[in-house]
Design a protein around this nucleic acid. Structure first.
Lengths: 351, 351
DNA sequence: GAAAGCATCCAAAGCGCTTTGAATGATTGC
DNA sequence: GCAATCATTCAAAGCGCTTTGGATGCTTTC
């Protein structure tokens, strides 16, 4: 059933039917009712493609998700983020179109999306430092919003980010307050902006405490479970092993826990662990007292909010670039405790 | 830049330009070249919406992802599945449109998708036993393919599934061969078809061995980490606790491991664990010898293959309903070992 | 009672593409 | 030399919707 048929069926013009359904004022309540009933009865839905062509609005938002060719990895936090965003879109009547793209084909993917005109806006994922995609999207002229931020990119754009620096600074401070001095950073890839900011927070707290950073305690890799495991195994073999780990995601944190236990130590006793926790639905930091002490910030909620920010930008005045900075919550669990009595813990390794 | 402008620029008709770009034979090689060059130079991409309207093909596949309202959960395996599917789509020039929908709004979501005509086909996720959505999609008439199968649904439809029954039967058999008699099933929700089949495999192996199933050792819940943890804690408190666990996903399996270790036991010694392993990219069952003995089947690969199956169905003759049954690989890791010497292990609890 | 205003409704153009049916020359066959 | 064939190209219709710019008939106003 299409508009023409519906109109014919009602002995009305397409114009009137269209207006009745879209809530224009110049149609009598009687006919509006009649039209609505008939549409309902025949399960009429306007053809999106025709509507999009006529209005110039696609009623869809694009997500370009980078897939690194080497790793073939899909970050599980995307799942939760997208669930949040999808919820917002659904409420606003928007669709979500996903494009999984290898790193080196990103530019083409964005240009294509814009030229093909099948989305009204784009969510930019996983921004890097000085990410060139931001300028690219500006040039293309499609509205966009960034999940995270890109340092060293000037000018306004719409974004939503967790205050990663402050979160990791506080977490480091927390460990320092417990007496830990050898704190290992198990970070994500540091060309990612979020990881870079976390590192900055970590370094800042150390510096404030007069502790020099030890490069042999700073790691940056793709955040897998086995990365967490390997890192602990490796660092516990050091002459002066860390007493605490600061981890970038609950996934490597699980590997960290496994390694701690495999090596006969206990979390919260010999070794303390703090992790960032995206509150992933299938990997909740559970327990009456949470398992991990964590910097908590729901990525699903971030999805909801960023989607709303983008829609806001699309629907409102042109040069409106809303941004939002979320503070992570430092929640105390069972994975942290005072630093063990210094067996041979001399002064920090190097001034 | 649109077709009209490009044609004007070239002093050609829209017809010729369109045909040149779409590889029709009735255009001279000289002009085809000229057109292609100009298109390239002006970065011309046909407007998808117009093209879709004119051709009747949307060049997009829809995924309706159920989100249970109570749990607000997004199964992380979707992430990997979608990565696989997305890869196939990208190669074929298709987009992927995602629709996250609450359980009770599914029917409407499917009908809307069909009526709005913005996808050419649908992937059906997480089928339940006797899933009504299959008949619904048949009625709607949109091509579709199912990730999994639905028992008790007659007639042909396109699907791809892992042989869940055989996988869990073999896994159970493997544990029985090691001498385990109290084997706990940590299953997914059993209205899900895959979970139901796994249970069937488990029961079949037990029965073959003359062992009566013990309802107090059979669990079925949403597959979270904490579910695995709780289940082990609870069952180890039984008078006659299980010596082995058969787990439905690596996520609860991690909770199982945590509980095993928290209760002072060791995986592969006092307690054996086999898990199904979807080969999730961030949660690989890693190690030279894998951590878990597992029934392995890559869900990302499933995504790739099922997407291809659906495209095949869309592009080929009408009543072609391809299906594929994958066998999971039983890979032996460090989490299984012979059953501990029976301390008080009497005969199975009930005949 | 004619002019003006109002409430409803409609015909037709247009969104950017594909595709049908023809036109235009150039080439061939006899 | 003229009809028939072939290789190119084009004008225009159509996909299903929105939207512009009238129509149409009724009330109101003075």
């Amino acid at each position: 059933m299409n508009l023409k048929e519906l109109a014919a069926h009602l002995n009305l013009s397409q114009t009137t039917v269209s207006r009745a359904l879209n809530g224009f004022p110049e149609v009598s309540e009687a006919t509006r009712k009649r039209v609505a009933d008939a549409a309902e009865q025949h399960n009429y839905r306007p053809n999106t493609r025709a509507k999009a062509l006529a209005t110039g609005r696609a009623m869809a938002i694009g997500h370009v998700i980078p897939v690194s060719a080497q790793h073939e990895m899909v970050n599980p936090i995307f799942g939760d983020f997208i669930a949040g965003a999808g919820e917002t879109y659904a409420k606003a009547g928007y669709d979500m179109v996903l494009s999984l793209v290898e790193d080196d084909k990103q530019e083409k993917a964005y240009r294509d999306m814009a030229a093909k005109r099948n989305v009204d806006g784009i969510i930019l994922h996983a921004p890097r430092m000085a990410d060139p995609r931001i300028d690219l999207l500006r040039e293309i002229g499609l509205p966009f919003a960034v999940h995270g931020r890109a340092s060293e990119v000037d000018g306004p754009y719409s974004w939503l980010d967790v205050n990663n620096k402050s979160a990791f600074q506080r977490a480091t401070q927390f460990l320092l307050d417990l007496g830990h001095r050898r704190i290992c950073l198990v970070n994500g890839l540091e060309y990612m902006d979020f990881a870079w900011r976390r590192r900055a927070g970590y370094l800042y707290a150390l510096e404030n405490h007069g502790i020099a950073a030890d490069p042999s305690l700073m790691f940056a890799e793709e955040m897998t479970e086995s990365y967490g495991y390997r890192t602990v195994m490796q660092t516990q073999a050091l002459a002066d092993p860390p007493t605490a780990y600061l981890v970038s995601s609950i996934i490597p944190a699980m590997g960290v826990r496994r390694a701690v236990e495999d090596s006969g130590r206990r979390m919260g006793r010999e070794i303390s662990v703090i992790t960032h926790d995206d509150d992933l639905s299938y990997l909740r930091n559970s327990g009456e007292v949470p398992q991990f002490t964590a910097t908590l910030s729901s990525v699903q909620d971030a999805g909801r909010q960023l989607a709303a920010l983008l829609l806001d930008q699309i629907l409102s005045v042109p040069n409106h670039m809303p941004t939002r900075l979320l503070e992570a919550q430092l929640t105390v669990g069972t994975s942290t405790g005072p630093a063990p009595a210094p067996a041979s813990s001399s002064a920090p390794s190097s001034a």
